[in-house]
């Protein structure tokens, strides 16, 4: 922890970066911290409780600015960074990654190749919580599963915290806000909620890196991350491709062009 503080302070003091994105102690658990000078770097902490996926901020231009910045990234964040890179959302020369490896060593990853090589050492596994709920769902019949999700989603009030917390939901105009045609009824109601969640899942499959940020953000406790996670698990063997763990560059179900005709996705 001390090493991260020192390194962050040095990077800022020497002007290598103008911002270090990390964690500070919060009121209930660690929370994101934007360090813009070496003094505030003293507030930085890093331990296993630091689970916010800070990659969500990397596409917000008004926050990260034009200069080079550093981000403190546990493994889940690194996977998001790789996927953002695959989608042409990040540039190598602006980003410096700090992480702590399992032996407690501070690591600096400078290129996407570095990150990819590092991420490759870690297998993407289900945690206890995911295992518990997903195995229950796996045992359900189709009808039971529909019932389970309809019940869960009846609690959704469309606060879109799941969308806001997801590093890969960076479109400037989301499908729920398009009103010509109105793809999704925008008010909260069981069926309209299902419309929203099916659309979200369809837009995430092949892109979701199973970081869990969406489920963690949901204030009414819907395990919303498990939908996109399960789709990823089902998709991966078929396409030989795990989002965020790119052995090959490219996307399973979509392509990205710099000269895309649509404005919202650039």
């Amino acid at each position: 922890m001390e090493k991260i503080r020192e390194r962050a302070a040095t990077l800022l003091a020497e002007g290598v970066v103008t911002l270090v994105l990390g964690y500070e102690e919060g009121t209930k658990r660690p929370r994101p911290l934007f360090c813009r000078n070496s003094e505030s770097a003293r507030k930085l902490i890093f331990d296993s409780r630091c689970i916010h996926n800070l990659a969500v901020y990397l596409t917000k231009k008004e926050l990260v600015g034009k200069d080079r910045f550093a981000v403190i990234a546990p493994i889940a964040t690194l996977r998001s960074i790789m996927q953002l890179y695959v989608e042409n959302q990040l540039s190598e020369d602006k980003l410096l990654v700090l992480t702590v490896d399992p032996s407690g060593e501070l690591r600096e990853l400078v290129t996407f190749e570095d990150i990819a090589g590092y991420v490759e050492q870690f297998e993407l596994k289900r945690g206890e919580r995911e295992q518990e709920i997903l195995s229950k769902i796996d045992e359900m019949s189709r009808e039971e599963r529909w019932k389970f999700w309809m019940e869960e989603m009846s609690h959704c009030f469309k606060c879109y915290a799941c969308r806001s917390a997801c590093p890969l939901c960076y479109c400037s105009k989301c499908v729920v806000e398009v009103n010509r045609p109105q793809w999704i009824n925008p008010w909260p109601a069981p069926l309209a909620n299902m419309e929203w969640h099916i659309n979200r899942a369809m837009h995430m499959v092949g892109r979701c890196t199973a970081c869990g940020a969406c489920g963690d953000a949901c204030p009414v406790g819907i395990p919303i991350d498990l939908i996109t996670r399960k789709m990823m698990e089902d998709m991966a063997p078929e396409f030989g491709y795990i989002p965020g763990q790119p052995a090959k560059k490219g996307n399973a179900l979509s392509t990205w062009k710099l000269d895309d005709r649509e404005q919202f996705i650039r």
Binding site: P32, F34, F157, C159, Y160, A161, R163, S164, P219
Partner: peptide, 13 residues
Amino acid sequence: SERCIGCGACAFV
């Protein structure tokens, strides 16, 4: 507000 991600959670509860 730097860390605020602009959702509706605070308003809805």
